[in-house]
Design a protein around this nucleic acid. Sequence first.
DNA 1: ACTTGACTTAGAGTTAACTCCAGGGAGTAA
DNA 2: TTACTCCCTGGAGTTAACTCTAAGTCAAGT
Lengths: 132, 132
Amino acid sequence: MTIKEVCGQFHITADTLRYYERVGAIPEIGRTAGGIRNYTEEDLKWIQNALCLRGAGVPVEMIIEYVKLFQQGDDTFEARCSLLKEAREEVLAAREKYDKALEKLNYKIKKYEEAVKTGILVWDQEQVKGVL
Amino acid sequence: MTIKEVCGQFHITADTLRYYERVGAIPEIGRTAGGIRNYTEEDLKWIQNALCLRGAGVPVEMIIEYVKLFQQGDDTFEARCSLLKEAREEVLAAREKYDKALEKLNYKIKKYEEAVKTGILVWDQEQVKGVL
DNA sequence: ACTTGACTTAGAGTTAACTCCAGGGAGTAA
DNA sequence: TTACTCCCTGGAGTTAACTCTAAGTCAAGT
C-alpha cells in the first residue's frame, strides 16, 4: 500500500505519516526495491493506534514510548500496562474538562436562543457557576 | 484582588493571566492608582470562562471573538449564539475521539493486566479494531 | 527516451499558546 | 531610607506537532 493510499484512508498528509515514522510513533515501514514505502496491514494498525491516541490528546512522546516498549518484547508487559494506565488517566482528566465545558456551552446556548427571540439575555444566577 | 491571588485560585501563572488580557480572551482589568491590576468578581468569571473553554480545547482565538462580541452589546446575541454552537461542535467532536481512545485503552489495559499475570498477551481478534 | 506524477531525504519553517526576561515602579515594614 | 516582595511592560524565547521546501529518484505510460 502506497503512502498516498494510506493518507486517503486516514485523512492525514504524507508528511505527518513520515513524521510519525521518523520520530518512532509508528514502527519503520518496509520499502520496495526502489526505496518507496510499502505499508502492510500491521502498519495500518499502528497508524490507527497513533492517530487514535493523538486524537485524544495523548502526546506523541508517550506513543513513541509505547512503540519502543512493544519492540523490546515480552519483558515489557508491565511497563506497557502502566504507560497505558498513565495515558488513560490523562484522557479521563481531559474528558472531564470537556464535559464541564459542554455543560456550560449548552446552558449558554439555550439562554442565547431565548435571547435571540426575546431580545433579552437572562442568566439564572448560580445555576451554572462562572457563566458569562 | 491581586494577580497573585487569582493565580492561586485558578492554578495558573500571572503570565498566562496577562497574556489572556493582552490578546483579549478576557476583558481589560481595572487598575489601582499605582497601575496594578485589581481583579473584580466579574473578572474572575471571565477568567473562569476562558479557562473552561481552553480546557476543552477551544482555541484562544474563538474566546477572543466571543469577548469582542459581548463587548459590542446586545446586537450580537445571534453571532454569539452561533459562535458558541460552533465551539460546541468542536468540543463534541473532540470528546468522541476521547471516548473512542478510552475504549481502546481500557481494552488494552485489561489484556495487559492478564498478560502480566499469565505471561501471554492475547488480542481477541476484531473485538476492537486497530489494537496493538 | 521522454514526460509526468508520485515518491524520497534532510533540514528549515510555521503555528498556537504560552513562558521567560530585563529593567523598572509600587507598597509595606523596620 | 533601605530592604523586600510584588507588580509592571515590551519583547524575545520555548515547545509540541506538524508542515513545507529543495533537490533529487522512481515508475508507468506513450
